[in-house]
Every structure is written in C-alpha cells, then in structure tokens.
Simulated scan of single mutants.
Amino acid sequence: MEKITGLLKIRVKRGIDLVVRDILTSDPYVVISMADQKCQTRVVKNNCNPEWNDELTLSITGPSVPINLAVYDKDTLTADDKMGDAKIDVQPYLDVIKKRLENLPTPTIIARIQPSGDNCLAEESSIVWKDGKIYQDMVLGLRNVKRGKVEIQLEWVHVADSARRR
C-alpha cells in the first residue's frame, strides 16, 4: 500500500454555460476520479449554470496520478449523459506545496499558470497564500463538448497536520 502524502480538497464551485442534454436544460453533477478513487457532487436540477460549492477530497500518494473531472446530466429512465470532461493539472500546485512556504503576507500570489495545450485552463489561474493556507482557483474548459466550464478550488491538507488537529 502506497503512503498517503496528503489530502487534496477540491471545492467544485459552479458550472458555467453547460450544454443542454435534456429538452430545455440539464440536471448536472460532477464526478472527480483519480486511480481507484471517485467522488461526486450533488445533482442541481434544471440548471446549465449550477452552483454546487461541494467539497470533495482525494488521498494523494504521488504527483503523477492524473485527476479527471467529468460533468454528467442526471437522467431517470436512461443512462446519464456526459456533458464534457477535463483534466485537473495539479503539478504546478504540488510544486508550490513542496516549498513549505510560511509567514507570507495574506493574500500573496505565489504563481500564475497560463492556459495551454497541457492543461484544461480556460483562463489564467493563480496559486495564492491566504490565511496560512495555499489555494489554487481554476476555471476548466470542458473537452469533448461544444461549450462549458467548471470553476474549482484546490486546497492541500498535510496528513501530519490533519492528524495533529484531532
């Protein structure tokens, strides 16, 4: 069994201009998966601009395992329809976490990541030190679909830190 290096909290904030998969709208939810871990948000009924603000957590054992995000439309009588997907590139974020930064003025922008062919960013993303924690806000453009974006926020929890707080 691999050693867990930390926990990655992923706050799935909202969907933006998601595609319609039912007659007039969709009932979207997000699934985040990594290796054998899978978690999902709640379903937001009849909304192509849903507000989830759901917090999902993954156990991280290494930086090279890809994290995938997929949006689905919940259907009652048929299989759920896919509304797009994206890869969450956490490598720049994990590189900053390894630096063990402390005592910075709050808020401080530590790094800026530009959209590229290597990530699914729809706009510039900043890694920020705020109130003793490091966050990264991302707007991901969905692939394999005409349009749609999902806004998320990453937050790292050191395993030693979480054990100490109990």
Rank of each mutant, 00 (worst) to 15 (best):
D161W: 06
K99V: 04
R21P: 00
A122R: 07
D54M: 06
D27K: 05
N119C: 05
K38D: 06
E155M: 11
E151R: 08
D161M: 06
K3D: 09
E2Q: 13
P28H: 04
D137Y: 06
K87P: 00
D27S: 11
T76N: 14
V31Q: 05
D161A: 13
S26V: 03
K9H: 10
M83C: 08
I23R: 14
K3I: 11
I134S: 01
T78I: 15
K99A: 13
Y72T: 04
L77K: 14
P105S: 09
K149E: 08
S26F: 03
W129R: 05
E51H: 13
K82Q: 15
I67K: 02
D17L: 12
A160F: 09
V19S: 14
V12C: 08
V19D: 12
L142A: 06
P107Y: 08
G84A: 12
C48T: 14
G6L: 04
I60G: 01
G132H: 05
S162N: 11
Y93A: 02
P107C: 08
P92I: 01
L140D: 00
L58K: 02
S26E: 05
N144T: 06
T41P: 03
E102A: 15
I23Y: 14
T25E: 07
M138P: 00
I127W: 01
M138S: 08
N68T: 11
N47Y: 04
R164A: 15
S26L: 07
L8P: 01
K87E: 11
M1R: 13
D137A: 11
H158D: 15
